[in-house]
Computed example of a mutant assay.
Amino acid sequence: MLNNANNSFTRNFWVDYLRSALTVLVVAHHSALAYTTFAKFDKKTYIFSTHPIVDSQRWVGIDLFQNFNDVFFMSLMFLIGGLFLSKSIDKKGVVNYVRDRIFRLLIPFFFLGTIFMLIAYFPSYYVANNKETGIVVFVYDFFHHQKWPSGPPWFIWVLFLFNLIGIPFQFYFKKLNDKIAVVFDSFGKKPLFFFVVFYLFTWVVFVPLTMLVGPGIWVGYGPFDFQLSRILLYFGYFTIGVLIGNSDFNKGIFSIQSGIVKNWKVWAFGALVTYAVLIRSEEILTKAIADGMLTVLNAHIIYWSVYVASCVLSNLAFLTIFRNFMDMESIGWNLLNENAYLIYLLHYIFVIWIQFCLLSVSASAWSKFLLTFFFAFILSFLVSSFLRKIRLVNKYL
């Protein structure tokens, strides 16, 4: 340990470490997708597959892990992404802030994201086209037939867009800064009320759109893809992050003395229980529809309402656990934090190539998942550490 809790608040170590932990979860999440029981591979258009590489080895336990992550972790990433918008604009000014976002988000997404995804998706092309290795044909197929898939870096361009949209909102929020601070500080004294407000807000920005367009629809142009059913959810959580960031959240809503933070065990237990209910509800609701006890519409409303509860409780659990236990600086966490962004950009290459290399290996799904995750994470970390020796890379990434 390098520092005490009081000194760490100025840098918000717990937020940095939470963001880093979520990056590790992203690596694990993608490492798991080749081994889920619902995985399918589309040889005609591999980008329509559930994952670029699909193994014959499957395990339902990996489904549970993958689905748990999917319920909450990207919404939490966007909430964290909004936390420091206000302070960054105040420190840099609008012009320098936009310039910084272009160099840190848009350019890496557009150029590094494209190069990295070209490397990452080649095994998928190879499998889909009966071991075809023509690079020129692959590149043409990548941009024209597969429509320039963005892969995990989709998050980066959407975050960039939210940052731009957030600028004019921020000037409005500034005028209400004192009132916003009072509201969010008061939530710390009313954890149950905060949960209800957070739940209702999440329900409104997620459930109606999901039921309207379906949960799995992705839209976009070129590499600028996004999941349509979740775009309001992500922007809503980003906005919550911006609003919280306009308050002194380490002394208010996320103070160690806050009722929200003190109840971390409640949120963690609730997250696990609610997720278990969510998984069990699929079978129960399907049977209820078949038996004529529920309409499809009502069953969907119930399912997505439980889904929202799982999302909110998992968000609160991770936020409060890290606020409680990550209030001191750590060398290991600092190293992870320094490399987290490049790990996010790089990991898909190693995940897919390792999964591809393991296709012919006789091993369990669980073993292949662990091998993929371990080596993808280590290799991403090592390459990131090497690239960050380059001055320009270290400055922006």
Results as ranks from 00 to 15, higher is better:
228 L>R: 04
120 A>H: 01
290 A>T: 10
379 L>F: 12
307 Y>W: 10
281 S>Y: 07
25 L>K: 12
78 F>H: 02
7 N>T: 14
129 N>W: 00
245 G>T: 05
10 T>Y: 11
259 G>C: 08
45 T>I: 13
377 F>L: 15
90 D>W: 04
24 V>H: 11
109 F>S: 00
6 N>R: 15
294 L>W: 01
17 Y>C: 01
76 L>D: 00
183 V>P: 08
278 L>W: 07
374 F>L: 15
118 L>T: 07
373 F>G: 03
282 E>A: 14
339 N>Q: 15
244 I>V: 14
56 S>H: 15
32 A>R: 13
229 S>W: 08
377 F>H: 12
332 G>Q: 14
306 V>D: 04
362 S>M: 13
12 N>D: 06
162 F>T: 06
33 L>W: 12
228 L>C: 05
338 E>R: 15
145 H>K: 15
130 N>G: 03
243 L>T: 04
388 R>K: 15
111 F>L: 14
374 F>I: 15
307 Y>N: 12
6 N>Y: 12
49 S>V: 08
162 F>W: 06
136 V>Q: 12
63 D>R: 10
193 F>H: 05
33 L>P: 01
254 F>C: 07
294 L>E: 02
181 A>R: 14
97 Y>S: 04
74 M>P: 06
109 F>A: 00
382 L>R: 11
175 K>Y: 06
88 S>L: 11
30 H>E: 02
55 D>H: 08
365 A>D: 00
83 L>Q: 00
196 V>E: 00
396 Y>E: 02
9 F>Y: 13
147 K>Q: 14
380 S>F: 11
287 K>S: 07
184 F>L: 11
249 F>D: 07
249 F>L: 13
289 I>E: 08
257 Q>P: 01
75 S>I: 08
321 I>S: 03
55 D>S: 12
62 I>H: 03
2 L>R: 13
165 I>S: 02
207 V>L: 07
115 I>D: 06
228 L>Q: 04
164 L>S: 05
27 V>K: 04
240 I>T: 12
357 C>E: 15
143 F>K: 13
157 W>F: 06
359 L>K: 14
42 D>L: 09
73 F>W: 11
22 L>P: 02
59 W>Q: 06
7 N>V: 14
